[in-house]
Lab assay of single mutants.
Amino acid sequence: LTDEELVTMSVRELNQHLRGLSKEEIIQLKQRRRTLKNRGY
């Protein structure tokens, strides 16, 4: 997933992508998404 996709994707879509990932990967992705959102994309 690109940063842009992460930010513009709805939470529902995101959760579908996260299905099948490990807990660590999910946590990393969610942190990255929060960081991007805070940057004001």
Rank of each mutant, 00 (worst) to 15 (best):
R32G: 00
R39Q: 15
N15K: 14
E25V: 12
H17T: 05
L29N: 01
R39C: 15
S22E: 05
R34Q: 10
M9W: 03
K30T: 07
T35S: 12
K37N: 05
Q16S: 09
E13T: 06
E25G: 04
R33I: 13
K37D: 03
L18I: 09
E13P: 00
E24K: 12
L18A: 04
L29S: 01
Y41F: 14
H17G: 02
R12P: 06
V11S: 09
N38I: 08
M9Y: 01
T8A: 13
Q16N: 12
E24T: 11
L14K: 01
G20D: 05
R19H: 07
Q28T: 10
R33A: 05
Y41I: 13
L29M: 07
S10E: 03
K30A: 05
R34D: 07
L14F: 15
V11C: 15
H17K: 11
R34C: 13
L6H: 00
R33L: 14
Q28R: 15
G40Q: 14
R33T: 03
N15H: 11
E5N: 05
E25A: 11
L29R: 01
R12Y: 10
R32Y: 04
E4Y: 15
R32K: 05
E25L: 13
M9Q: 02
R33C: 10
K37M: 14
Q28I: 13
R34P: 00
L1W: 06
S22L: 05
I26R: 15
S10T: 13
L6R: 00
S22P: 10
I26D: 01
V7S: 07
Q16Y: 12
V7W: 06
L6A: 00
E25Q: 12
K37R: 12
N15G: 06
I27S: 09
N38R: 10
N38V: 06
T8F: 08
K30R: 13
L21I: 04
R19M: 10
N15D: 07
E5T: 05
K23V: 10
T35W: 15
L6W: 00
D3H: 02
G20Y: 08
G20T: 08
R12F: 09
E13G: 03
N38Q: 09
I27G: 07
Y41D: 12
Q16T: 08
I27W: 12
Y41H: 13
V7E: 06
M9T: 02
G20C: 06
R12E: 12
E24F: 09
Q28W: 13
N38G: 09
L14R: 00
Y41V: 13
S10V: 02
K23Y: 10
Y41E: 12
L21M: 12
Y41T: 13
R12W: 11
E24Q: 12
V7Q: 06
R19E: 08
G20L: 08
V11T: 10
K30M: 15
Q31I: 13
K37G: 03
S22H: 04
H17Q: 05
L21N: 02
L21P: 00
G40I: 15
R19F: 07
R33P: 00
R34L: 07
G20R: 08
Q16W: 11
T35R: 14
Y41A: 12
R33V: 07
I27R: 13
L18P: 00
L1N: 01
E5L: 08
R12L: 08
R39T: 11
K37Y: 06
S10N: 06
L36N: 02
R39I: 14
Q16E: 12
E24D: 11
G40T: 07
Q28V: 12
R33S: 03
V11Y: 12
